[in-house]
Computed example of a mutant assay.
Amino acid sequence: MSEMSEELAAILDLPKVELHTHYEGAAPPAFIRGLAQEKKVDLSKVFNSDGSYAFEGFVPFLRVYEAATTVLQTPEDFKRLGLAILEEAASNGVIYMESFVSPDFCGGGDVSAWREYLAAMVEAADEAERDFGIVSRGIVTCIRHEGPEQAKTAALCAAETVGDFITGFGMGGDENIGAQRDFKYSFDMAREAGLRLTTHAGEWRGPQEVREAIQDLGVERVGHGVRAAEDPALVDELAEKGIVLEICPGSNVALGAYPDWKSHPIDMLRRAGVKVTVSTDDPPFFHTTMRDEYLNLANTFGWDAAVFTDIAKASANAAFCDEATRQNILNKLET
């Protein structure tokens, strides 16, 4: 093995911290196909002939995503899903992972039903920590294209179940619909309940969307946020305020936000002093893993192990977890 390949292998084996994954979006295609067969649901249009998820572009991706989730119908389904995604993440060296979970997919926003689904996800998290050594937390998310009123039900579910596992609140969905400020009520409710805040912004809309997320919703982290790179003043503001960007390069390239890895602004943002993190978003949809993300970043930007370790530490410090858990993660990153 050459010196370079040994160095690259060491990078790929580093312990990793992931802050931006979608619970349902991390479902392996084979898992979803298996559930569809069990429940006799026709999802043939969801998959390509090779078994991968079939879509081109962001809005078709959202449609396929939501179609795939229709087979996730019971708390037990979500427990099985949780074990599958946590085992896969752990196999890629992830020692801590946060996932976005939506009550819209877990009981339709009813708090009582949500509690049952949540209990199943907590069981999966506990078993995965015991069996795979991975620690996980959940961030309740409202869905932007479902509108502000529906978002209030997600915020209520989050506020009613804040605790050891549910530690944050955020928003996903179609960024091109509505405005961040439309969801201020829900974010205020979550903040008052003690939840940490993040929101998807600046994946498709420009820098102003990131600025509005910070100003109107008061988030401390921004999902994606990469379009901020187009506004030098905003880049300086992000660096000065310590706003953390949950960046998912493989997702951005797969969906066409950037034509290739060399065009991606993550390295520029990092060099400008912005706190960047690395995640997979919806890994099987975008044919990626955390090892793949590390491999592409190392090959594209020449990042070495020290850079990746610094990013993992920054991710741990930005994690929505208690201080004891954070220190435990940081200790593992030092070994």
Rank of each mutant, 00 (worst) to 15 (best):
E240F: 03
F286T: 03
L245H: 04
A306E: 14
N296Q: 15
G194M: 06
G138A: 11
R80T: 02
A193F: 06
G194L: 05
G138Q: 10
E334L: 09
R181S: 11
V307M: 15
G133T: 05
Q150T: 14
K241G: 05
H200A: 00
E127R: 07
V46K: 13
A193K: 02
E293H: 10
R205D: 14
T198C: 08
T335K: 14
F100P: 07
K184E: 15
G206N: 12
D231L: 01
K16H: 02
F47I: 05
E24N: 13
L62A: 07
S112M: 11
A120F: 02
V64I: 12
T198Y: 02
P28H: 07
P15Y: 00
E237K: 09
V210N: 09
I243S: 01
L43N: 10
A120Y: 05
E175M: 04
M4K: 15
W261R: 09
Y96S: 07
T309I: 06
T74N: 09
V253A: 04
D77L: 01
Y96E: 08
V219K: 02
T167F: 00
H224M: 02
N176H: 14
M290Q: 15
N48G: 11
E293C: 10
M290V: 11
A193Y: 02
A36W: 03
A213Q: 07
N176T: 15
D104M: 04
G147T: 09
E6I: 07
A36Y: 06
C157M: 04
V235F: 01
D131R: 08
F55R: 05
T70I: 10
A179C: 14
F183R: 00
E56F: 13
L245N: 07
A125M: 06
T199H: 03
F320H: 10
R291D: 15
A67I: 03
N299I: 02
L238M: 04
T288D: 15
C248M: 12
P284V: 03
A233C: 08
R33M: 09
E212H: 13
V244Q: 05
A272Q: 12
A125W: 01
Y53A: 06
V71N: 09
I11H: 07
C157G: 04
T277H: 03
E7Q: 15
L12N: 14
V244P: 09
D267H: 14
G223P: 14
R270D: 15
I243G: 05
G172Q: 07
K39C: 01
L14T: 03
L35H: 05
Q327E: 13
V71A: 08
P284Q: 12
G178Q: 12
K39H: 00
L8E: 15
G256E: 14
W261T: 07
F55S: 11
P284G: 05
G170P: 13
R271V: 00
K262L: 13
A179V: 06
A10Q: 15
E127S: 11
Y117M: 09
V111K: 12
T199R: 00
D42Q: 03
